[in-house]
Design a binder for these strands. Structure first.
Lengths: 144, 144
DNA sequence: ATAATTTCGGATAGTTTTGTCTTAAATAAA
DNA sequence: TTTATTTAAGACAAAACTATCCGAAATTAT
């Protein structure tokens, strides 16, 4: 469903957000450990998300990654997915046809229209903040 | 969503089925052309599906691939997906956690439970035959 | 039998994704 | 100002996925 890069990205953002709620910055090593993700690869993914203004970072001692408390309420998970994987998950044809639409649909087109729009809706309605709360309460986990 | 192998596999099966409705066997070159798929790769995918008894084949002159008219009504698309991509699409954790369940869920677990079971249900309820009818009627396409 | 046709199966090659390493740049503290 | 810390960025490596090629096996037709 999601690429590995995207999985790491989402987990990292949630972890960063959970620490940002306590006004703490997080170092990449810390993120990697707590999300059970490869450090250097996750760093690369986060670098891209920093460029795209989804998360913020600071170099130097006491630096690290953080995310605005306001922003984490506004940013939906779908933004992270699109930032990393693009929007083919939401738009692309299930069978890989270059053109696939209501006029010239692939055999699965109509069935997937619902599934995809539902998936999109769910991810658009879910904010980083919402997911972070679950972590804070200990109801959900990022690694096992 | 699906791997390329799976996309080719599904398209190939639908094309084979549409020809099998007219009691014709189809050669791999014919399949590749009409599904806009790479021939050798599709052949390999079909080889696997033959082994798993989803489609049948015959070597030699006038040979080719075909699928029983009865079977195409019974076999759901989900069987093809599982045969090629496994069932991680239906069962796997959205964030890649090894263990992710109701007791120890990832942050997206509950949201994806619905999406996944819906996706699974749709693919289980859709037979090869059903998709083939759309092709026959010219309502849907396998290549453009 | 022989020849032609077609799938089967294994080897090989290319491309993308995933992952690592190393150096540079930025920042803060001493 | 110097040093330590941390992200940034690019090169490099490994693995997975996609794709091709070729000879073997099976089947049919001549």
């Amino acid at each position: 469903m999601f690429s590995k890069a995207c999985e790491y990205g989402i987990k990292a953002i949630i972890y960063i957000a959970s620490r940002s709620l306590q006004d703490e910055r997080v170092k990449i090593g810390d993120i990697a450990k707590n999300t059970d993700s490869p450090e250097a690869f996750t760093a690369k993914v986060l670098g891209s998300l920093v460029k795209q203004n989804i998360v913020q970072s600071q170099t130097g001692p006491n630096g690290g990654f953080y995310i605005d408390k306001e922003r984490m309420r506004k940013i939906p998970v779908s933004d992270i997915v699109v930032a990393i994987d693009g929007n083919s998950l939401f738009n692309g044809c299930a069978l890989g046809l270059k053109e696939c639409n209501n006029l010239k649909p692939c055999p699965l087109h109509h069935k997937f229209l619902r599934i995809r729009s539902n998936l999109k809706k769910v991810l658009e309605e879910t904010s980083i903040y919402e997911l972070t709360i679950g972590i804070q309460k200990g109801e959900t986990i990022l690694a096992n």
